[in-house]
Design a protein around this nucleic acid. Structure first.
Length: 117
DNA sequence: GTCTTGACGTTTA
DNA sequence: CTAAACGCCAAGA
């Protein structure tokens, strides 16, 4: 469980990394969902920016994070434009034309799955 | 120190 | 219905 979320002392990036790490295998989440979960519903851009910083970090499954449409918009930042898609496929996620087919089914919303009290 | 860009999402025209 | 602008915060030039 993420305890630092309520703590304003925690950095936005850390919160993003924490949530992304919590994404179950074979599931995907959206920048907006994470941003909203962190309290910055309209700051989805920052989530993407945080992901960019995750490049130098390990254990950040950024490939499980896509945009609201389920499109692999950030695939180009994985070193290879196909690396993200391949990784998702390895987890059993069906990707067609850089888009997740069963995105609606694989969608993982932190504010719902984590069940906040 | 100021301006532009950015892995998005929502709202208005 | 589609198209465009706005908002949000941060970092690079």
């Amino acid at each position: 469980m993420i305890k630092s979320i309520n703590d304003k002392n925690a950095d936005f990036f850390e919160n993003v990394f924490a949530v992304v790490k919590l994404i179950p295998k074979g599931r995907v989440s959206s920048y907006g969902a994470i941003a909203k979960y962190l309290g910055s519903a309209q700051s989805s851009r920052m989530v993407g920016w945080a992901m960019n910083a995750s490049h130098k970090m390990d254990g950040i499954p950024a490939h499980r994070v896509v945009n609201r449409q389920g499109l692999l918009t950030g695939k180009m930042h994985f070193g290879s434009p196909t690396l993200m898609e391949e990784k998702l496929k390895l987890e059993g996620i069906e990707v067609v034309n850089d888009q997740i087919s069963n995105f609606k089914t694989l969608y993982w919303d932190p504010s719902i799955e984590l069940n906040i009290d």
